[in-house]
Design a protein around this nucleic acid. Structure first.
Length: 369
DNA sequence: TAAGCGTGGAG
DNA sequence: TCTCCAAGCTT
């Protein structure tokens, strides 16, 4: 890692902020410095790109314009607002945070990163972002952009996937950042990371700060940031039973922990829970699923295979391959079923994950009525 | 500290 | 199709 003189630091601040004043992006959450607006945008932007977030942000503000509105919203409505964004615990934690603010802080946001970190769902990055942007506190906001930008500017060799590395960057950035305009400084770094200093194909030749970019000057830009690779997703086989009860659909709500918590899907069963493998015949699969419905749901299922390709869906840690069955049950014994009989009208109000959308698509492909 | 947690885009 | 990456936090 290289060190900058105070002269270099001053020149960098001026260059960066002048560029930001001229070329900074006009984004919906930059129209004011309301902590609620900054907070919502920052949570949505975690591991998610700006282009994806914008329509979600606009709708979220229309549905939940204030901390109080968010605190009082039904969870189903919250998850519906988040449907398709992923990492769904983010929005459940936001509601917990909103309630925490009302209960413990008299509805007033704390104004320092140290205090903001105590709130549910607000980690070191988000605390720094809110504190600097909404409250002008000179603290760094170390996200993926900051890792990328500063590792290249200063040739920082620490592995950014290691938790301890954050402090190295926080210290380096603290010495460099503007104390007059900390919020603009942090946002300028993000805009820089999203434009000239991207991960794959940086355009440093035209970057406003190329003269400060040591890795670029050394021809080693793509060596930064240093990170260890993630393991590839593990394959898991499922069977989805698209089940009708008269005109209605049989839907189940997932548990409150783990993947896709509290979201709704059709009955989705791991093949390993059925004691069958992908090599077994369709008849064996149906037989096992019938048994499963009887034992778990006290429902008598009639099922047929669907002549369509399985649905595949890749998560961060798992790759699902899902066989589709079409099922019917008699509307006799729903009491023990961990789910609901849902009318076509109500179906649209249930929050469902992307993988369920794929299941509907593939089902319609097989059964176009 | 390492693992778990979604989705979309780019190459 | 596969791999990597994107404004991270929690346990």
């Amino acid at each position: 890692m290289i060190e900058w003189s105070s002269t270099t630091i001053k020149a960098f601040q001026t260059t960066l902020l002048d560029w930001y004043d001229k070329a900074g992006r006009d984004l919906p959450w930059r129209h004011d410095h309301e902590p609620y607006h900054i907070w919502v945008s920052e949570i949505m932007l975690q591991q998610t790109q700006v282009q994806t977030v914008i329509p979600y942000y606009e709708r979220f503000m229309a549905w939940f314009p204030t901390v109080t509105a968010l605190a009082q919203a039904p969870e189903e409505r919250l998850l519906k607002a988040w449907e398709g964004l992923g990492y769904y615990s983010r929005v459940r934690n936001m509601q917990r945070c909103a309630r925490q603010l009302l209960a413990d802080y008299d509805g007033q946001w704390p104004q320092t990163a140290a205090e903001l970190s105590d709130l549910i769902g607000i980690g070191p990055y988000t605390a720094g972002a809110i504190a600097s942007i909404a409250f002008n506190e000179p603290v760094p906001a170390v996200d993926g952009n900051a890792y990328r930008v500063f590792s290249r500017l200063l040739e920082i060799d620490a592995d950014i996937t290691k938790p301890g590395t954050r402090e190295i960057f926080e210290q380096a950035i603290s010495r460099i950042m503007s104390t007059d305009r900390p919020g603009d400084f942090n946002q300028a770094i993000m805009d820089l990371g999203a434009s000239y200093m991207t991960a794959r194909q940086p355009d440093t030749a035209h970057s406003p700060v190329k003269a400060f970019n040591q890795a670029y000057l050394d021809g080693k830009e793509l060596d930064y940031p240093v990170r260890t690779k993630k393991p590839r997703p593990q394959p898991v086989d499922y069977v989805a039973v698209v089940t009708k009860m008269g005109p209605d659909w049989l839907m189940t709500q997932r548990g409150s922990k783990g993947m896709l918590a509290n979201l709704w899907t059709v009955p989705l069963i791991k093949l390993t829970d059925l004691d069958v493998t992908t090599d077994d015949s369709a008849a064996d699969l149906i037989s096992a699923v019938r048994q499963y419905f009887k034992q778990e749901y006290q429902l008598i299922l009639t099922a047929t295979t669907l002549a369509v390709r399985p649905v595949t869906h890749t998560f961060t840690h798992q790759k699902w391959t899902i066989q589709l069955l079409q099922g019917q049950v008699e509307p006799a014994e729903l009491a023990f079923f961990a789910g609901e009989r849902v009318s076509p009208t109500d179906l649209a109000t249930l929050p469902m994950p992307k993988v369920q959308a794929k299941i509907w698509d593939r089902y319609r492909q097989a059964d176009p009525e």
